[in-house]
């Protein structure tokens, strides 16, 4: 499968990793480990899916925070879009459930904004394609899906 990130995803990821003392340093490892452990059909069919519309799904994947030994309920939430007709996955947002940057849940409007951002950046070819086998290293910074 091909993985892309939006600017909000990259910003929230940076914000989690820039202060090691906050306890979120394992986030990249935890994201990659989770996605690598899932077959493509599981990435699409996971029980963490929250919305299905025509040919795509939105997933709110629960991840552990291995750095703090927190299990999935207390770890991170990874919001991603997955196509049901191609091999594309776009990572939209990452946030922790606990700690200084902990969020209980996103507000409704945020989901709308994240999807619109993905559409805009896809159309402008400003999505970044990333490698989950290499800690989300960037393969292409002027990418779009399809």
């Amino acid at each position: 499968m091909k993985f892309y990130t939006t600017s909000t995803f990259r910003q929230t990821l940076t914000s989690l990793t820039k202060k090691p003392k906050e306890g979120y340093n394992s986030v990249v490892k935890d994201i990659c480990k989770a996605l690598l452990s899932m077959e493509p059909n599981i990435i699409r069919e996971t029980n963490d899916r929250i919305k299905q519309f025509e040919d795509f799904r939105i997933v709110k994947l629960r991840l552990p925070n291995s750095g703090q030994h927190l299990s999935r309920p207390d770890g991170f939430r990874l919001i991603y879009y997955v196509s049901l007709i191609s091999d594309d996955v776009t990572l939209l947002r990452i946030y922790p459930k606990r700690g200084p940057q902990g969020i209980v849940d996103l507000v409704d409007e945020e989901y709308d904004r994240l999807l619109l951002e993905m559409v805009t950046e896809n159309n402008n070819k400003t999505l970044h394609q990333v490698d989950i086998n290499n800690s989300l290293a960037e393969l292409d910074t002027q990418a779009n899906m399809f």
Binding site: K51, E54, F56, Y111, F146
Partner: peptide
Amino acid sequence: TFNIDLAQNDHFQQTLKKVSEMMH
């Protein structure tokens, strides 16, 4: 959020259509 509020939110439904259009 998803089964009640956004399911009845016209703006969000329009956004979902835009995603679908992007795919096609």
